[in-house]
Design a protein around this nucleic acid. Sequence first.
DNA 1: GAGAACTTACCGGCCGGTAAGTCAGCCGAA
DNA 2: TTCGGCTGACTTACCGGCCGGTAAGTTCTC
Lengths: 218, 218
Amino acid sequence: MPTSPTTLFADERAGSIYRTAARIIYTKGFEAASMSEIAKAVDLTKAGLYYYVKGKGELLFAIMSFAMDLLDREVIAPAQRIGDPGERLRAIVEEHSRLLTYDEGALVILMDEVGSLSPEHRSRITERKRSYFEFVRDTLDELAAAGRLHAVDTTVAAFSLLGMVMWLARWYAPGGRLAAREVVRDITEIALRGVLREGRPEAVSAASSAVYSEEVLS
Amino acid sequence: MPTSPTTLFADERAGSIYRTAARIIYTKGFEAASMSEIAKAVDLTKAGLYYYVKGKGELLFAIMSFAMDLLDREVIAPAQRIGDPGERLRAIVEEHSRLLTYDEGALVILMDEVGSLSPEHRSRITERKRSYFEFVRDTLDELAAAGRLHAVDTTVAAFSLLGMVMWLARWYAPGGRLAAREVVRDITEIALRGVLREGRPEAVSAASSAVYSEEVLS
DNA sequence: GAGAACTTACCGGCCGGTAAGTCAGCCGAA
DNA sequence: TTCGGCTGACTTACCGGCCGGTAAGTTCTC
C-alpha cells in the first residue's frame, strides 16, 4: 500500500523525532529534558514539535510503548515458542541482554521513568511489565515443579535475574573494550547458574576470555 | 562532648530535613521534586529551607554523601576485615541487600540521580562508587586466582552481582508478603551460586541468618 | 541587644503549551 | 495554462505558572 510522499515524509520525520527524543530523555532524564531542547535537536521550534506530538506526557508514553513492543517482539514472543522451561529461561535472559546492548535509550526509559507517566498511561505500561515478569516467574515455577531449581522463592529469583539483566543498560558502553557477545554470554551463565540446579552442558564456555576491555562507571 | 541546645536542635532539624528530602526525591525524582515541596514537607517556607541548605545541588550531594557513608560503614568496612574472599563476597552481598531493605531513599538516589550532580560533585561520588566496584571485582579476582570462580569475566560478574542487589530497591516493598530476611538470603544464594564454583558450606548461611534476626519495621 | 531561626515578598528565567500567521506545493476548474 | 483555494508543515510571538534563589525584615531566646 503506497503512501503519499508528504505522509511518508511525515512518518519518517515522526520516527526520527521519537528516536531523538528517546536519546535525550535517556541521557538527561525525563523531567530534566525540555521540549525546546528536543525540538532544537530535530531542527524545529517548540511549536513545530507540537505539530507532531500532543504533549510531553504523550511523547514519553509513545517511547515507552515502542520499547515495550520491541521487548514483546524480540524477547517475549520468541521465548513463548520454546517448550523446555530451561531453554526458555536461557532465551529470555540472552535475548533481553542482547537487546540492551543495542539500545540507545527507549528500553532504559521504560525502566527508569514510569513515575513520570500519568496514572492512566502508567497503569497501561505497568500492566505490560507485570505480564512480562509473570512470564519469567511462571517459567521458574515450571522449573521448580520439575525439581530443576534450587530452593529459592521464584518471585525473588525472577526479580533478581531481571535486575541483573536490566542493570546491564546502566554500565555497558557499546564500542568499549568489552564485546557485547561475551558480556551477554557471561551474564546468561551467571543468571542460569544462580537458579538452576542442573550442571548445564556448556561447550562454549571455554572460549570466554577473548577480547575484554574497559567499562564505564556512570 | 556536650553540644549546646540550639546547635543540637539545628543538627536534629537538619537531619530530619535531609531525611525528608531524601524520601521526596526518591519518590518523585530529583528534577521533579521542588524545593518548595521539600520545604512544605518539613513545615518551612522555601526561604526557611534555604537557611539550612545552600542549594538544590548541594542538597542532592549531601544526601548522596550520606548514603555513601552508610554503605562504607555498613558494608565495605566490615567486609574489608574478612580474610577469606568467598566469605567476604557473601558479606558484601548480604549486607548490601539488607541495607536496601531498610532504606527509605538515600541509597536509591545514590544509584539513580548521579546525572543531576554538578561535574565536581559527580566526580567525587563516582570515585567512591568506583572504589566500591573495584573492591568487589578484586574479591572476585582473588577467587578466580584460587580457582574458586566459574569462567566468567570478573568485571561482568561484579556488575551483575551488584545490579542484582541494587535492583532490590526497585521492587522490594517492606511489610509485604516477603520478609526481608528471606529475600536477603535468597538473593545471596542466587548471587553466590551464579559465580562460585564451590558447593558452599551451608552451615555458614544458617549461622548468619540467626545473627540478623531483627525485624524490619517501617 | 545580639544572634539564631525563621517569614514575607519578591526576582528573572525557563517551563509546557498555544493562537495565529506564513508559505510551499498540489488541486480542480476555467 | 493559469489561477484561486486548500492543506500540510511549519514559525513567530506570546501565555500563565512554577522554578531556584534571595534581600530584608521579624520573632524568639539567651
